[in-house]
Amino acid sequence: MKILVCISKTPDTTSKIAFKDGNTKFDDAGVQWIINPSDEWNALVRALELKEKDASIVLHLISVGGADYDPIIRKALALGGDEAIRVNADSSDSYFIASQIAAVAKEGAYDLILTGKETIDYNGSSIGGFVAELIDVAYVSLATKFDLNGTVATIDREIEGGEETNEVSLPVVVSCQKGVAEQRIPNMRGIMAARTKPLKVVEPIAVDALTSLVSFELPPAKAGVKLVAADNVAELVRLLHEEAKAI
């Protein structure tokens, strides 16, 4: 059994978002980088839980990015996993990124490919779907529970207004969200072990990007809060009804 977990690097959730170079680039001055939360807490940790139950599972991590990704990959390896692969390329086009992952996934004949539900920077929720189509396997999105019984996965996934239980034979691509795994933090032994785990750097395959980033913008500033006294709740209701026309 081989599992591949997709790891992305994102700004820390407390980061103030700003742009540079005429609003064409993210301004990373003073920004702390983290493993994209749902890649780490959901996809990776669930894979680790599976590996703890079945030591024969081979667990690889994959990232698409430049050398600046390495500290994040080492951090992920400190949580667990046997080795990591970094495709040495940088792109804002998620199809390009997914194509790199698909090429590695195909080559490595993985049974299970896990991603987070979305990255907190581009919010596309699209890597899993792209990869599944490119390697022509089933795709289950937004998983909240994942169990494996031999080569059949039982997965709860979010649907509009509820949840659905799916049974699917491997291989499968699954995007993971909250609920799928318990939370954990890396321990010192893991951090030490991660230093010597293999981190292979491979060159990208040639892919034409389907989209290109033109510019970023920030939302307009708010006009400021209108405060109403706590003993005058009727006034708030009047404002919401007459001024904001929201109720």
Binding site: S94, Y95, S125, S126, A132, E133, Y139, S141, I159, L210
Partner: peptide, 21 residues
């Protein structure tokens, strides 16, 4: 949730650029 399941797959199938969200 449906769009998140299918949009990227359709994009890859048709080699049609996707803007998600």
């Amino acid at each position: 949730t449906t769009g998140k399941a299918i949009a990227a797959r359709i994009s890859a199938k048709l080699k049609a650029g996707l803007v998600a969200g």
